[in-house]
Nucleic acid binder design. Structure first.
Lengths: 231, 231
DNA sequence: ACAAAAGTGTTTTCGGTACACCCATGT
DNA sequence: ACATGGGTGTACCGAAAACACTTTTGT
């Protein structure tokens, strides 16, 4: 059998990407969801998604879809998992790869997002979404919690410069529990993966809090020592 | 735009599943690999794989492919990730979902596997495989190590009844480091997820070692208590 | 009797957790 | 002067790690 005929008899499928886009704002984790403006399911709430084209990888498709809605590129994205049930999409048999993205909410293009019917919703505000999108979100949250514990991905959600209080409140929001201020500072500073800046942020206190910046080089040094980032 | 035309202009793709099948035998982790008997790439080493059909989910496709080669069903399988680069498959644009499976090596249908050109290879014997299959294996190993630490999946690789020495040697093989005998016994027995049988296994010592069996109910009880399985 | 693997406790060490007060500054 | 969030050190506890000898039994 030739290679051509080997592939010729095989059925082909629509392959979608759906993006669970996390942001962190006003001390709350938020998700970017859209109210669809087009059929099918116009008016329904949904994740941001699209179809994989001929000339792009699935990862590229997810990045394209994200940029299309937020104007952002070069964003932390990771595969969540494949949703491949035959009847998961009411309109056609569509195999969907879900990706989750962590963005700095203040850096995205708000007008562009609005044009696409996108809204930032807090976790407790999430409505019923089309298809299996609620399940995708639940899986993404679990994944975010698992990954944030052992990988320095929380920084992707904060502004480039941030205070330790902001960082702590982010982890408190992710884990839904309060963290001891002194223990948190001790732990994160001991990891030595951030650069302490001279600058202070005075927006939330009179005294002002030092700003820090995640330092990828320091993180690599930590890894080379065989140590594991853990919050 | 109608729903039909919405889907009609979208390109479709070949979607494959590739299975990284782990077994444990003679104290060694092994992988089931095949020497392809059909074009393209006949004679080359490869993972066990196949294409997703119209009427099956991706998970079902992976289970079908596994059963086709090993005769086993109802096996622990989990999605690894999607490999979706445009040119990853030399023959055509194929998006592949990789799954990893843990099987009891002695329960599979050896003659059937041989008919398909399948061989069990130890990790250090793995040759260069087609496409990105070596990368898939590397990713699967990482995933196996991560998951085995916090989920009771090691038992999927052992016979139903096993000794504590077998269990320990499995974890030593997975983590590639020796584990203290007393500490290991203390830890695993404290979790209370196994049933101790009266029977003894005398194949590897004169004295004989007690056999144990994983008890899913006990494991659920552990989870209900909010405790985490950890080795 | 001896070889070969099974089985068993205690001590030390280290990291995690709990916890309360002073500091700097804008108003 | 006081209110507000920023910043700091120590004591305790429990889990993990290190460690060596006795038991059983087939040959």
């Amino acid at each position: 059998m030739s290679a051509a005929s080997f592939y010729a008899k095989v059925p082909k499928h629509l392959v979608a990407v759906d993006c669970i886009i996390f942001g962190f704002d006003e001390g709350r984790l938020k998700l970017l969801l859209i109210q669809r403006k087009v059929a099918p399911m116009a008016g329904e709430w949904s994740l941001v998604g699209g179809f994989v084209q001929e000339a792009e990888s699935t990862d590229e498709a997810a990045a394209r879809v994200l940029e299309h809605t937020t104007g952002l590129n070069n964003i932390y994205m990771d595969q969540l998992r494949c949703y491949g049930d035959v009847a998961r999409d009411a309109g056609a048999r569509v195999i969907s790869m879900a990706y989750y993205a962590l963005i700095r909410i203040n850096e995205h293009d708000r007008p562009l997002a609005q044009e696409h019917g996108a809204h930032w919703l807090e976790l407790h505000e999430i409505p019923t979404l089309i298809f299996d999108h609620n399940r995708m979100i639940a899986d993404a949250l679990k994944q975010l919690r698992n990954n944030a514990q052992f990988h320095p991905i929380g920084f992707e959600l904060l502004p480039e410069k941030f205070t330790l209080s902001q960082l702590r409140s982010l982890y408190e929001e992710i884990y839904q529990k309060t963290l001891d201020k002194r223990n948190f500072r001790k732990k994160i500073l001991a990891l030595d993966v951030m650069e302490k800046l001279e600058e202070k942020d005075k927006t939330s206190s009179k005294k002002g809090a030092h700003l820090y910046r995640f330092d990828a080089q320091k993180y690599e040094a930590l890894q080379r020592k065989g140590l594991v980032f853990e919050i």
